[in-house]
Amino acid sequence: MRDDNVIEPEGRLAQNFFFRLLKTMNAEGEHSDYAKAWSAEHLAERLFGGHSQIDLAMIQTVPMFDLYKDGLDAVDRQYELVQLEPERVVFCGGTDPMLRGLNTAMHDIDYQITQLGARSIKFYTAHTRGRSWRMDDPAVAYPMYERMLEHGVNLAQVHKGNPLGPEPISALQTHDVGEAALAWPQMNFIIHHLGVPYEDEAIAIAQRYPNIYLSMSTWINMIRVAPRLTAERFGKALRGVGADHILWGTEAPLGPHPQDLLDWVWDFEMPEDLVAGYAYPRISDADRANMFGRNLLRLLDLDYVNGRLVPAGAGAPDEVLVSANATR
């Protein structure tokens, strides 16, 4: 969020949104200086330092090239956290077939998977000035899925809902993810941000496709400042897709400190009136174990054994695992 990375005027609108959102999310906690280049060491300390109970993080590339020159941060800078903490951090790459061009996007996928070890690729479909695209576009999206599968990567993630700047809000709807999931059953798809304000739509789509998952990112950060609203969204998601299709996400380092957020959400219990009045399920310890790390490990075909990531089946997984789906 450095000023020299902002593209005017679109990026400035997104910048103002970010700062308003951060002020709201951090109303009861710390306020940090986000408009600077954070080092990998700084982020690692925030995630894993002190009394942190976080074992695993996924660092995500944020390819918002219509708002920020390097996206929200450059790919190689994101990868620095993996180099610093290779036993605890999984790399998620990212690209954009419209803003980068499809040929360059394919090159990005090749490079990020083969050279940086990306286990997933993140996409943004909603862009300014008529440059939006769809996850079910055979000419734009499907060649990227095919290339990912050629490299053995079957996990695509997409920003839906949560408008950041002047992008058309209609492009943030989730219909296209359902069509992509139907056409590509060998792929898994993660919808970020619950598609808010289209959360009912996102849940209705995800509950019908076993290869679609929902991330807690952003909306869960409001659990202290908007507890009722967050409980209702949480309950809808749990009732709709179940705890085995929901993934923890912190937006770290944005928002509350990731350990604080972990404590608040881990201790959350579904209000009794929402259980009785809306059939929202209570949350078991097994549900928490799935949402806070095991679901992501299953999607990545990994286990976490003796404090390090290993291929699934290489050893008995540690009993406790907490992940932070992190963006820097």
Rank of each mutant, 00 (worst) to 15 (best):
N5S: 02
I7Q: 11
I7C: 09
E10T: 10
R12C: 07
A14V: 13
R20C: 04
L21S: 08
K23L: 14
K23V: 10
A27S: 12
G29P: 03
H31S: 10
S32G: 09
S32C: 13
A40Y: 07
A40S: 13
H42W: 05
S52C: 08
I54E: 01
L56S: 02
T61F: 13
F65Q: 11
D66Q: 02
Y68D: 03
D76G: 10
D76N: 13
L84I: 06
P86A: 06
V89S: 05
G94W: 07
T95Q: 12
R100I: 14
A105I: 10
H107W: 14
I109L: 10
I113L: 08
G117V: 12
A118M: 13
A118K: 12
I121C: 08
Y124L: 13
T125Y: 02
T128N: 06
G130V: 04
D137F: 00
D137A: 00
P138M: 00
P138E: 00
A141H: 00
M144W: 01
Q157Y: 01
G161Q: 00
G161W: 00
L164V: 03
P166G: 11
S170H: 05
S170Q: 09
L182D: 06
A183R: 00
N188K: 06
L194C: 10
A204F: 07
I212H: 04
I212D: 03
Y213E: 02
T218R: 15
N221D: 14
M222T: 14
I223S: 04
V225I: 08
T230I: 04
A231F: 04
V241Y: 07
A243I: 04
D244L: 01
W248P: 05
T250I: 05
T250S: 13
E251W: 10
L254F: 14
L261I: 11
L262A: 09
V265C: 09
W266Q: 02
F268A: 02
E272H: 14
E272L: 14
L274S: 09
G277I: 10
Y278K: 12
R288C: 11
G293Q: 07
R294E: 02
N295Q: 04
L296V: 12
V305Y: 04
N306D: 07
P311V: 01
A312Y: 01
P317F: 02
P317A: 06
S323L: 14
A324K: 12
A326Q: 09
